[in-house]
Simulated scan of single mutants.
Amino acid sequence: MRIKRLFKKIIAVLLLLVTSVLVYSLIPRVRNIDPEFQTELEYGEPIAKEIKDILTPKEEPERIRSIVILQDEKVVYEYGPTDKIMNTASIRKSILGLLYGIAADKGLVNINKTLTELKIDESTPLTNQEKTATIKHLLMYKSGIYLPSQGEHDSQITDRPIRESYKPGDYFFSNNFDANALGTIFMQETGISIGKFMEEHLAIPMGFQDFSKQNVIVGDPWFWPKKESKHEQYYIYLSTRDLARIGAMVANGGHWNGKQIVSKKWIAESITSYSNLKKNRINYGRYDGFGYQWWISSNTKTVWADGYGERFLIINPNRNLTLVEQNFTGNSFLSTGLWLMNKNMDSGLGNLIKVHQMITLKE
């Protein structure tokens, strides 16, 4: 009898444990909300049918995908759940670059300060040479600091240079240390969380429709294996329609709906290339330059934010044109895990590039 009762207790405990894990795995990291400050996007003349047909899938895509195209701040094409908040992945870095511009203009941040002056170090202590890197070097991916960092993948690991092989400012390397340390420094220097600053200085004045400060998470809330680092990865969740607003604002020199959100000077500096990537030992594909956390394609006169999981923000400042594609990569431990298990990224980038060419040639 005792063994039977013990067995039942063990089964009950196991069932409770399994249920708890299942419930936990289903909890979303962030939730869609209806902010009080939201404003509706305006609609312009839709793109031509032959262009629209290129973007609109003939069959339901394997993944949840949404696309928005804005021209002169007006929607000319949209597809999918454009209000669904999604992890922007590395697009977060370009957004933080804009927040640095706002903070610098307010005198909260000096981008010429060195890591020594900022008292920034790492779990693996930085060398004296590495500490001469400035915030500006980090914004340009030229810190000369080559250490493991949270969220890094692919060439960030396999092509990482040897420590102190380049001095700060000498060599471009797409490095998550730089991006994550920029998050640490931003919060340290402003005394404000990234989410709160973004809500106050981007979301509210631009009337984001699906954002709150809780959409920015510093440190992974799930138990993914992490690299030991003093600089946690931060996550920014945005709907495609809100992300498109950001792109349109950059395309228009920091201006949105009659307001100067980011100074024209900072936008100009941000989308100026400080590196010739064609001469870099690593092939960065379509990109031949890099600004302050923005990729540059001089061939198409476009500025890009690029996130893992096939999400793209393409900006053509000359045409005041913004094209955005996002693919849903999960918003809970379970949905994110299922996405990671499926290697098919199911991207429509080729069609997005083709449509950009057709729109610009048509004008």
Rank of each mutant, 00 (worst) to 15 (best):
D170K: 14
N128W: 00
K196T: 14
F173N: 03
I185A: 03
S155A: 03
Y100A: 01
I145M: 10
T124R: 14
A133S: 15
S155K: 08
P148S: 15
D121Q: 08
I120E: 06
P125Q: 11
T127G: 10
I194Q: 10
D170I: 06
Y146Q: 03
G169F: 01
F173A: 00
A179D: 15
T114E: 06
H201M: 03
L99N: 05
N128F: 01
F186I: 12
G169I: 02
Q188A: 10
F186E: 10
I111T: 15
P148Y: 13
T134L: 04
I185N: 06
P161E: 06
E117T: 00
N180F: 13
H153S: 06
F177G: 02
E122P: 02
S165K: 08
T132C: 06
A133Y: 03
M198I: 06
H137M: 03
I135M: 02
P148K: 11
P168E: 12
K196S: 10
A104W: 02
G169K: 02
I120W: 08
D159N: 14
E189N: 04
N112G: 04
I162D: 13
R163G: 14
F197S: 11
L108C: 01
L118Y: 02
I120S: 08
L108T: 01
I194K: 12
E122K: 01
P168A: 08
T132Y: 04
R163E: 15
K106I: 03
T124V: 14
D105W: 07
Q129L: 15
G151Y: 10
D105R: 01
P125F: 07
F172V: 07
N180H: 14
I135P: 03
N110K: 12
F177R: 02
F172I: 05
L182P: 06
I145N: 09
I192G: 02
N176R: 13
T132A: 04
K131G: 02
F173L: 00
L108P: 01
K106A: 12
P148L: 13
I157V: 15
K167R: 14
S155R: 04
N180Y: 10
S143P: 11
L118D: 06
F197L: 10
E130V: 02
N110D: 15
G195C: 06
S123H: 08
A133D: 06
D159P: 05
E122W: 04
R163D: 09
G151P: 13
H153M: 00
E189S: 13
G195T: 12
V109C: 11
Q150C: 02
N180L: 11
K196G: 08
Y146R: 05
E152N: 11
T127E: 07
T127P: 06
Q150L: 00
E200Y: 05
L126H: 08
I111R: 05
H201R: 13
D105L: 00
